[in-house]
C-alpha cells in the first residue's frame, strides 16, 4: 500500500555543470524554475504594457486585473511608507510579484525557487542594501553613531542586530516555503495511490496558496517597516 519512501524527492538536483575560472558551477532545478518564472513575469509585463498603452476608459477583464494588481501594491506601500512611497514602488512591486509567483509555482509541479536558500539570501541582501542605503541617506553620519547608542559597550550587539536583518528575512521565507515543499513531497511520496487524487488539494491550499501569499506579503512589509524605522524623525 504505502510506498517505502523511495519516491520522496524534494532536493535540488543538478541538471548540468560547467567550469568557470577553474570553479565548477552547477545549473540546478532552482535555476530552471527561476528561468520559467522570470520568463512568465516578463511576458506578463510585456502584454500588460502593450495593453495599457491603449487603455480604455471602460476597462476590459485583463485591464481590470492589471489595474487591480497595481492598486493593491500601491495601497500596501502607501499604508507603511506614507509620503515617500514612490521610491519603493519599483522594488517592492517587483519583489512582491516575483515572490508571489514563485511561492505559488509549487501548485504547478515545479520546485519553488524560494525553497532554495541561495535565492532568498540574495533577496534578503538586496533588502539589506536598500535599508542601509536609506539609513545612510537619511541619517548621514548618525547612521554610524547610532550603533554606539545608548552605550558604546553595546556596539557588538547593535552590529549583530543589523546583520541579523537579512538573515532573518531570508530564513523566514526559505523555512516557510521549504517546509511546505517537504510536507507536500512526504504526502505525495507516502500516500497510497487512491488517496493522492483529492486529498492533497487541501494541503496545497494551506502550504502553497495561504502560506505563500502571507510570506510574500510579510517579506515586502518587513522590508518597508525596517526602512521606515531607519527614516523616522527623532
Amino acid at each position: 500500500m504505502a510506498s517505502d519512501g523511495k519516491q520522496i524527492d524534494f532536493m535540488i538536483h543538478g541538471l548540468f555543470s560547467f567550469s568557470l575560472f577553474g570553479q565548477e558551477i552547477w545549473i540546478t532545478t532552482s535555476h530552471a524554475s527561476l528561468l520559467i518564472i522570470i520568463l512568465l513575469l516578463i511576458v506578463f509585463a510585456w502584454v500588460a504594457r502593450r495593453r495599457m498603452m491603449r487603455a480604455e476608459p471602460v476597462p476590459g477583464a485583463f485591464q481590470n486585473v492589471v489595474e487591480w494588481i497595481v492598486e493593491m501594491i500601491d495601497r500596501m506601500i502607501a499604508g507603511i511608507m506614507g509620503d515617500c512611497s514612490e521610491w519603493f514602488r519599483n522594488y517592492i512591486g517587483a519583489v512582491f510579484l516575483f515572490l508571489l509567483t514563485s511561492n505559488l509555482s509549487g501548485l504547478f509541479g515545479i520546485r519553488p525557487p524560494t525553497a532554495d536558500f541561495g535565492v532568498t539570501l540574495g533577496l534578503g541582501l538586496i533588502s539589506f542594501a536598500l535599508i542601509q542605503y536609506f539609513n545612510i541617506r537619511h541619517n548621514r553620519g548618525r547612521a554610524f553613531t547610532d550603533l554606539f547608542r545608548p552605550l558604546p559597550v553595546l556596539f557588538p550587539i547593535n552590529l549583530i542586530g543589523e546583520v541579523a536583518t537579512p538573515l532573518s528575512l531570508s530564513l523566514r521565507l526559505f523555512g516557510n516555503v521549504l517546509s511546505g515543499t517537504v510536507m507536500m513531497a512526504l504526502v505525495y511520496g507516502l500516500m497510497p495511490i487512491f488517496l493522492k487524487l483529492g486529498f492533497p488539494a487541501v494541503l496545497h491550499v494551506y502550504f502553497d496558496v495561504f502560506s505563500g501569499c502571507i510570506q510574500a506579503y510579510v517579506f515586502c512589509m518587513l522590508t518597508m517597516v525596517f526602512t521606515r524605522q531607519k527614516m523616522k524623525e527623532e
Binding site: M11, G79, S168, L171, R172, F174, G175, N176, L178, S179, V182, I214, Q215, Y217, V218, M221, L222, V225
Partner: peptide, 27 residues
C-alpha cells in the same frame, strides 16, 4: 489583521531556525 499577521510572521522566526537545524541534521 495586517498587524497580527506581521507580528505572527516575526514570532515564527525562532521556530523556523529550529526547523532549519532539524533539516540540516536530517538531510
Amino acid at each position: 489583521t495586517t498587524t497580527m499577521l506581521l507580528g505572527q510572521a516575526v514570532a515564527e522566526t525562532t521556530g523556523l531556525y529550529s526547523l532549519a537545524i532539524a533539516f540540516i541534521l536530517l538531510f
